[in-house]
Design a protein around this nucleic acid. Structure first.
Lengths: 165, 165
DNA sequence: TAAGATAGACAACATGGTTGGCTATAATGT
DNA sequence: ACATTATAGCCAACCATGTTGTCTATCTTA
């Protein structure tokens, strides 16, 4: 046996990133075809974080581990695109409840369907069982706290770290 | 059999991203401990693209699929941190050859070693064979063009797309 | 030698992040 | 009941990373 027949470790993150990018790129190419050309990869996470219940800027910031100001800016951008709308809260005059519009819900539902199709395509390529194993393995090694995923934009390049407020 | 026992498709990209983030976060935590606290996730890709041979801003931009201006800015930032240095090319007065400094090479070598250790940690968790399979599967489904990976920063959030020049 | 292509730099702008400061409203303690 | 504290949302300023457009200097080529 050779003393080191293992692949170099740097390949693993590359493969994970390429796989992620591949899925996200395919998703958004298909979303664009289905009438959502201006939605960005980040927006999907935001839609998910808003959910069907609606939320507020401060709460969104906490869920995404970004500052409430950043959350507010994102909400404003999404509002301008017609994906979310803001209402008021009768019980708390400070809060402005953000909820998905019909267009936002349509985008969210189409995303779910497209992701299912993409997963089926992967399963067709490597086999359902291997794909199940791949997911199971990743669940074991990846931290399960699915929040703080939206640090992704910024996290990659900037040095500031998570917000203080 | 149930009509749909498969996991929802949206989980796959999440797992890939979490896995990637986990590796990169661990890498940079360890790099910080080993004397490189100010290097960013993106920089590793840049170091890799510069290589031991050195390169130029325009060529770096092509390798990373970013504009030469963006490449120039990144080089300037890395130069300020002491990781790269710029020299001239005797054969072509236009070109300014960028090469890694001793510190840059040190960082690159430590990164490689840390990635190997992280891979061993994953192998200890899920088994060497499963990890090999995971990598093999990802190689099949992920596009192999390892360039255009540095679109990552920006790609996630912005809408501009790849550069024209 | 003139025309075109390339390298690098500067300015201006967009996006998405952060911090700091501000006002309005709610919650809490004395 | 009232004063304090905490929270929600917003505005301005800044940083980091991208883009485009424009400019000059230098090869390369017809």
């Amino acid at each position: 046996m050779s003393t080191d027949s293992r692949p170099p470790g740097y390949e693993l993150p590359l493969l994970l990133l390429l796989g992620f990018r591949s899925l996200i790129d395919d998703l958004h190419a298909e979303l664009a075809r289905q009438g959502h050309p201006d939605v960005r990869p980040m927006h999907g996470f935001v839609f998910q974080a808003i959910g069907t219940q609606g939320t507020t800027a401060a709460e969104l910031g906490r869920r995404l581990a970004i500052s409430k100001q950043a959350a507010g800016k994102t909400i404003a951008a999404l509002e301008a695109l017609g994906y979310v709308a803001r209402g008021t809260d009768a019980r708390d005059a400070r809060r402005k409840v953000v909820h998905l519009t019909g267009r936002g819900i349509d985008c969210l539902q189409r995303s779910a369907r497209i992701f299912d199709e993409l997963r089926r395509a992967w399963a067709a390529e490597i086999g359902e069982q291997r794909l199940n194993e791949l997911e199971a393995d990743l669940r074991r090694v990846a931290p399960s706290d699915a929040s703080r995923l939206l640090e992704a934009p910024g996290w990659f390049g900037s040095a500031t770290g998570p917000p203080r407020d």
